[in-house]
Amino acid sequence: MNKISLGEKIRYNLRLAKKNYDCYLFLLPFGILFAAFVVMPVAISIFFGFTDFNLLEMPELVGLKNYQKLFVDDEIFTIAFRNTIIIALVVGPIGYLASLLIAWQINELNNVLRAVMVTIMYAPSISGGAYTIWQYIFSNDSYGYINSVLISLGVIKKPVQFLSDTEWMLPIVIIVMIWMSLGAGFLSFVAGLKTIDKSFYEAGYIEGIKSRWQELWFITLPTMKPQLMFGAVMSITATFSAGAVGTQLFGSPSTDYAAHTIINHLEDYGNTRFEMGYACAIATVLFALMIICNELIKRLLNRVGT
């Protein structure tokens, strides 16, 4: 094996870049916007996370003070962090597995039924603000759907204070988010399953695959690993950016911060208090969480089908 020296590599890349300079021109318009509104925010968060900054005065470097405050002094952040992790650990896996199982079952249906089912399952995630309907479903008085059903069944005598009882807030956010969790990842699964080559299954059957579960684990899942990865990214996106559902149902901040998430905390410091340095530190923590989670899922998915 002849090793290529670093100098040669650089020279080769420069030649390649010069020859294909027009590629960079094609990349430029998107690249500028992408750099300004996606890459820069992350870079800026990391930098301003080490400063004290209120948008009016020059930012002042304060070292790790923001992070110290976040993890040591800010009890509300501890709650927000805990809630976000709980939401991610419950909604993430449930939504992900549900997407997969439902897509898998839908794939067995005929075309018309499949189209209807896909629409019903996907509808909640694109319903815009329609999830406010859960406010009526969980309403505190006996006019609430759940309360009225439970009372008429004789399970409870007095309506449960779903929307004011802090015990219920996080579970309700989780239920609503699971309801909305069949999003782009789900579509990717449905589409991916549809395109798997039938001959794989025939070969697998001859090799001795006995049940549909074996078929799923040994043939279907390994074949659609790319879609599984995409679905994972989508579900990380959805769960870690949780916040709007709680705000909509319980107001912001929710009583005793029972449904407070990292995003709510970020908005509180960024939009209301204008403590941008601190807000950026919070954002940095969120980015780090997402990337770590993504890495873990990647490792997990590499074990599928073995």
Binding site: F37, V38, M40, V233, T237, F240, C280, M290, I291
Partner: peptide, 22 residues
């Protein structure tokens, strides 16, 4: 970078984005 940034939606980058817009 694009693939990683699929996770960083507008909700997540809203505050640092505000600094840039500003």
């Amino acid at each position: 970078t694009v693939v990683i940034s699929l996770m960083f939606t507008a909700t997540v980058t809203a505050i640092p984005n505000y600094i840039i817009m500003n």
